[in-house]
Every structure is written in structure tokens, then in C-alpha cells.
Amino acid sequence: MEWRVRAIRGATTVSENSVEAIREAVHELLEALETYNQLDPEQIISATFTVTRDLDAVFPAAIARERPRWDSVPLLDVQQMYVKESLERCIRFLIHFNTQNPDAPIYHPYLRDAQTLRPDLSIPQVSLSS
């Protein structure tokens, strides 16, 4: 079987600019990413997180590094371009990964208010913590 590089994108929002709110949202987003895509962090080539200019309490990559096996994933945080009247308090990611199954469906997790960004890609809202 041949390996192939694929990409997953996703987004979420936070209720406030606090470490706790950002931590909760990033963990929820990455849990959805791993669960729905059956993605092992060891397959990840790199992950780029973007945040809107109203979020500066903590880097999402620092939160991602708290997760099991994410400490060796190359991570980058950048500020998203400001567009007037765009979604506020938003965290997005773009993750590239290696796969031996290039035909497997990809689920792009758009959670919370970020579902409005891509309703065509939104996955059903379920509790992933139970």
C-alpha cells in the first residue's frame, strides 16, 4: 500500500478570551478530529492553528501539546487575517497527515458557532467526553 498526504481543517469558537475557555475548546476540537477521523497523532505531519485577533490568552498549540502523543507534532500558531464582521473568538486548524488509506472519508470538525463557516462540512454535535 502507498502512503499519501491528506489534510483536515476544522474550527471552533470560545465563549471568552481565557486560558480555560481556549483549553476546553481546543481539546474538544482535537478530540473530534481524532475520533471522527480515527487519526493517530503519529500520522500528523504538521498542524497550523489560527486565532482571531480577540484571542490572546494562550497559544492553541500549547494546549495541543498537552494531549497524549501530540508533544512531537510540529505545531504553529498564527493570527488570522482580520475581516470586518467575521466570526469572533474563532480558532481554526489545518492539519496535514500521512495515510495508507487515501480513499477514506475525511470529517472536518466545525464545532460550536464555527458551524456557520462551513455548514456543509459540520459533523453532528455529540458529546465526545463520555
Rank of each mutant, 00 (worst) to 15 (best):
P41C: 04
P41K: 04
P41Y: 03
P41I: 05
E42W: 06
E42N: 10
E42R: 11
Q43G: 00
Q43C: 02
Q43R: 01
I44G: 00
I44N: 00
I45N: 12
I45H: 07
S46K: 13
S46P: 00
A47T: 15
A47N: 04
A47S: 09
A47F: 03
A47E: 11
T48M: 09
T48W: 05
F49V: 14
T50Y: 00
T50K: 13
V51S: 15
V51P: 03
T52V: 00
T52R: 05
T52C: 03
T52K: 02
R53T: 13
D54I: 05
L55I: 13
L55V: 12
A57N: 05
A57P: 03
A57L: 05
V58K: 08
V58A: 11
V58S: 06
P60G: 06
P60A: 09
P60D: 08
P60I: 05
A62D: 15
A62Q: 13
A64F: 02
A64R: 02
A64V: 10
A64S: 08
A64I: 03
R65C: 06
R67L: 15
P68V: 12
P68D: 15
R69A: 06
W70V: 03
W70P: 05
W70Q: 02
D71V: 05
S72D: 11
S72F: 11
P74Y: 11
L75P: 10
L75E: 11
L76N: 13
L76E: 10
L76M: 06
L76V: 08
L76S: 02
D77N: 12
D77K: 11
V78Y: 06
V78W: 11
Q79R: 07
Q79W: 12
Q79D: 06
Q80H: 06
Q80N: 07
M81A: 13
M81N: 10
Y82Q: 05
Y82N: 10
Y82A: 14
V83I: 15
V83F: 07
V83E: 13
V83C: 03
E85K: 08
E85P: 07
L87F: 13
L87E: 04
L87Q: 08
E88H: 02
E88S: 14
E88W: 06
E88D: 12
R89A: 02
R89F: 01
C90G: 01
R92K: 14
F93E: 08
F93R: 14
L94Y: 15
F97Q: 02
F97S: 01
F97V: 01
N98A: 04
N98T: 00
N98D: 00
N98R: 00
T99Y: 01
T99F: 00
Q100C: 08
N101R: 08
N101S: 12
P102A: 04
P102S: 04
P102E: 00
D103W: 08
D103Y: 07
